[in-house]
Write a protein that binds this DNA or RNA. Structure first.
Lengths: 246, 246
DNA sequence: TGCTTTAGCCTGTATATACAACCTGTCTTG
DNA sequence: CAAGACAGGTTGTATATACAGGCTAAAGCA
């Protein structure tokens, strides 16, 4: 169990104060020299922590003035993090899931890097098939940081999806997505009951809580019976009527 | 006229070498100590330049081994409606386009419905291939409401993309997206220089201005060398670090 | 009072130095 | 020949120091 670097600890400490409400938007954040005194680090280390928090949008720095908690005003984003069970329910259909794998593993190189943990650190590996009216609609291949969710192996993910459970045990703060098209592996093809040469839409999602990645998931969808939808409105514009798209 | 900071100059120098092809993916990038000698900076300055290039996805660093040019797997932001030329420029690459079709047509049933115009009403049909460093990266199949953009046929879309031109002549107010995976048609396969059984990532986009649809586009991307990225932050929380995922 | 100067704090950058951890290839040894 | 020890290069982090530049408020002056 290697300790996080000092500048990362500093970042988390400040992120924690922001997310707990101890520091509110526009509040002044301790200056680099304050942190030299209070945290016992050198100014360059404090500088790196604050600079990265600035790059990441947590705080705003003004040369000659100070560092302040950023105004939280996130743009309306597309591709919201939704629970697939909710999506299906919204369509008036029935969701069901089958758990294929639910076990402890050790993080391989790439996974460790993605989740920002040590190589070989324990992670929980989940593999499940989601169905809409008994038709396979998503193969969920998920890794969860073990220390974040110790009870992961005790959960019955047929009843509550991993996504729903994770956002229940800790507030989800952030999600990154990547979307790509790819041909499925033999196994994925089987689980999703795909025909030959039928592509998959793969959503790769990394979710964060308290400034740390907690889960990494690959979500495979059959290209022939699935699509993502999104909506974008530039800042400062009032919406009109989006109805059915082509 | 203030000069750029030294670490920024270093970054640009390396980005330039990458985008000019002097450094190719997986090539070794000069180490921090090399830069100390060749660029005459301190190691910490070289470190900052390389570290930021790593955070931005240009290079990949492996402790104990070295720094290497990242495999370029193009990424594009789903959320924001962006001009592909800008996306490519942001990556330090060169954008080029070829216009295949640019003509007046009459709206077919489905298209008329999508664009909320009468069946048979005039629309402009554009078909163009976008390239990133001469590699086809997007086939744009677009229909524009004729009454909205009468000068559409006079434009040279090799110089300015349809997306850029449209948002210049009228403020874009809304965009709907759909994303799906599909196998390309023979013609799409040819234009994108795709191999057999190689899937496409298709973004279908309808843009609105003044409460009316003005344009409908299908954007085909090669599944093997393209991905969409997105970022989601629930209300009340501010962003953290998006870096490269596996 | 009203304007100017100045002192002081803050961030931004740059350097020199140091040590830890990691990886690879080589050399030694059994 | 194979396994292990080792050296050298590389990144990752941390510190101390220095100077430039921006901003603010207090001090000084008219």
């Amino acid at each position: 169990m290697s300790a996080l670097p000092r500048y990362q600890q500093l970042k988390q400490q400040i992120i924690g104060q922001i997310s707990r409400g101890e520091l509110k938007p526009r509040d002044r954040v301790p200056s680099e020299n304050d942190l030299v005194g209070s945290a016992g680090v050198s100014r360059m280390t404090a500088n790196r922590a604050l600079r990265e928090l600035n790059d990441e949008g947590y705080v705003e720095r003004v040369a000659g003035v100070g560092t302040f908690v950023a105004d939280l005003q996130s743009a309306s984003h597309v591709l919201e993090v939704r629970n697939i069970a909710d999506e299906i329910a919204l369509r008036g259909h029935r969701h069901s899931a089958t758990v294929i794998t639910q076990q402890n593993e050790r993080a391989a190189d790439e996974m460790a890097k993605s989740l920002r943990i040590d190589r070989g650190a324990p992670v929980f590996h989940l593999l499940l098939v989601h169905r809409e009216n008994d038709v396979p609609i998503q193969l969920e291949d998920r890794f969860v940081v073990a220390s974040f969710a110790p009870d992961c192996l005790k959960q019955d993910f047929c009843r509550q999806t991993p996504s729903a459970w994770l956002s229940a045990i800790a507030p989800l703060q952030e999600a990154e997505h990547k979307v790509r098209a790819a041909m499925p592996s033999k196994e994925t093809q089987k689980h999703l009951q795909l025909g030959d040469h039928e592509p998959c839409l793969v959503v790769i999602r990394r979710t964060w809580s308290d400034g740390r990645p907690v889960s990494f998931a690959r979500l495979y969808h059959p290209g022939s019976r699935f699509e993502l939808t999104g909506h974008y409105t530039p800042p400062g514009i009032r919406k009109s009527t989006p109805d059915q798209a082509p």
